[in-house]
Simulated assay, not measured.
Amino acid sequence: MKKKILIVGSNYYNQIYFGLFQSAINKLNKKFKCDQLLVPGVFEIPVAISKKIKKYDGFLALGCVIKGETPHFDFISQAATNAIMELSIQNRKPIGNGIITCLNMQQAIKRKKKGAEAAEAVISILSI
Rank of each mutant, 00 (worst) to 15 (best):
M1D: 09
K2F: 03
K3W: 00
I5R: 07
I5M: 05
I7R: 00
V8E: 00
V8N: 04
N11Q: 06
Y12E: 08
Y12G: 02
Y17L: 14
F18I: 13
G19M: 09
L20A: 00
L20D: 01
Q22I: 01
S23C: 10
A24I: 02
I25E: 13
K27Y: 05
L28A: 08
N29Q: 15
N29M: 11
N29K: 15
K30C: 10
K30Y: 06
K30I: 11
K31G: 10
K33H: 13
K33V: 12
Q36D: 10
L38Q: 13
L38M: 12
V42C: 14
V42A: 15
V42I: 12
F43L: 15
E44W: 01
P46R: 01
P46M: 02
V47D: 14
V47F: 15
A48D: 09
S50R: 15
S50P: 08
K51F: 06
K51S: 13
K52E: 15
I53D: 11
D57K: 09
G58K: 06
L60E: 02
L62S: 02
G63N: 08
G63Q: 04
V65Y: 00
V65P: 04
I66Q: 00
I66K: 08
G68K: 13
T70G: 01
T70I: 11
F73L: 11
F73P: 06
D74W: 05
D74L: 14
A79Y: 12
A79D: 11
T81P: 01
T81C: 07
A83W: 00
M85L: 14
M85E: 09
L87N: 03
S88Y: 05
I89F: 09
Q90G: 09
I95K: 03
I95L: 00
G98W: 00
I99F: 01
T101K: 11
T101C: 14
T101Q: 10
C102W: 03
C102G: 03
L103Q: 09
Q106W: 05
A108Y: 03
I109K: 12
K110N: 14
K112D: 03
K113T: 13
K113N: 14
K113I: 12
G115S: 04
G115Y: 03
A116T: 05
A116H: 02
A116L: 12
A118E: 10
A119D: 02
E120S: 15
E120C: 11
V122Y: 00
S124V: 13
S124M: 15
S124T: 15
I125Q: 13
L126R: 11
